[in-house]
Simulated assay, not measured.
Amino acid sequence: MPAMTAAVPRTSISLPLLTLISASLAIMALSQPPQLPAAWGFVFKPLTTLLIVWHAWRRGGAAPGLARWLLAGLMFSLVGDIALLFPVSGFVPGLIGFLIAHVCYILGFCSRVRFGAVRWPFLLFGLVAAMVLGRLWAFVPADLQGAVLVYVVALTLMASQAWAWWRHSVRDPQELRARWAAWGGTLFVFSDAMLAIDRFAGPVSQASLWVLASYWPAQWCMAQSLGRPAELSAA
């Protein structure tokens, strides 16, 4: 009898590839100097995030509480993505969109483990945030300092809680999913740090490449943390 092999759904292969292609086209269109027509960025930047939303939606059915918050975070991130396509007028709306997204992520991670269950990630990310903000503070306009400070606190708490979930779940069935969230939070911190340096103290060479090439993997990791239904039923 011939060996039986499990069929892999075509979408499980094509979706990561489509996301990678869309992200690459967006980065090429939004880079300086642009390698594609700038208008392509207005199409492929939101499309890339929408593909990640789709990925999260397909994985989240077995964990409705976590999925609800992570999908909300991704949708507010989409709002932020679109707003930041307009670097001047869209900066504050984009900041607000991503601020709400981080609050959603924090609430999602808190549905898996209590807030601050592991304390050292809060100390570590707090130190990193303080160092970056300390170097940039003199360049941040006075009318934006309050908003930037609130955003940095939210970003720091999000990444810290993601790591708290992971380290609290070591040798637990949900450890792999928590690890995805932790690396997503870390990549988000790196991406936003590069964005802040470029905006306030830059310019940074190839800033769009650094920012977006870490931002979308961060969001993909968030979606991955939802796991598959079989994984979640064992957790």
Rank of each mutant, 00 (worst) to 15 (best):
M1I: 13
A3V: 14
T5A: 12
A6M: 14
R10C: 10
S12H: 13
L15N: 07
L15A: 11
L15K: 10
S24R: 06
L25P: 01
I27H: 01
M28Q: 07
Q32V: 14
P33L: 05
P34R: 08
Q35P: 02
Q35C: 10
A38V: 15
A39C: 07
A39F: 14
W40M: 15
F44L: 01
F44W: 09
P46Y: 07
T49K: 04
L51I: 00
I52M: 05
I52R: 04
V53T: 09
W54Y: 13
H55K: 03
R59F: 01
G60M: 02
G61W: 12
A62P: 02
L66H: 11
W69F: 12
W69Y: 12
L70N: 04
G73S: 11
L74H: 00
M75N: 04
S77Y: 08
L78M: 10
V79D: 02
G80C: 07
D81R: 06
A83D: 08
L85Q: 08
F86M: 09
V88Y: 12
V88I: 13
P93R: 06
G94R: 08
I96P: 02
G97V: 07
G97Y: 03
L99F: 15
I100A: 09
I100L: 14
A101M: 11
H102A: 00
I106V: 14
C110M: 15
C110I: 12
V113T: 14
F115H: 05
A117M: 12
V118Q: 10
V118I: 15
V118S: 03
R119A: 14
R119T: 13
R119H: 14
W120P: 01
P121I: 04
P121E: 09
F122L: 05
L124C: 08
A130H: 01
R135P: 00
W137I: 07
A138K: 12
A138Y: 11
V140Q: 04
A142E: 14
D143F: 10
L144H: 07
G146D: 07
G146E: 07
A147C: 01
V148G: 01
V150W: 10
Y151L: 06
A154C: 08
T156S: 06
A159Y: 01
W166N: 06
H168C: 12
S169D: 10
S169E: 10
Q174L: 12
E175Y: 05
L176D: 07
A178H: 04
R179A: 09
R179K: 15
W180Q: 03
A182V: 03
W183Q: 07
W183Y: 15
T186C: 04
L187I: 09
L187T: 02
F190G: 00
S191C: 10
S191R: 05
L195G: 01
L195Y: 02
D198M: 04
R199S: 03
A201P: 05
G202A: 04
S205V: 11
W210H: 13
V211C: 05
L212C: 04
L212F: 09
A213Y: 00
A213V: 00
S214Q: 02
S214V: 05
Y215R: 03
W216F: 15
M222W: 07
A223F: 00
Q224F: 06
A230I: 08
A234C: 10
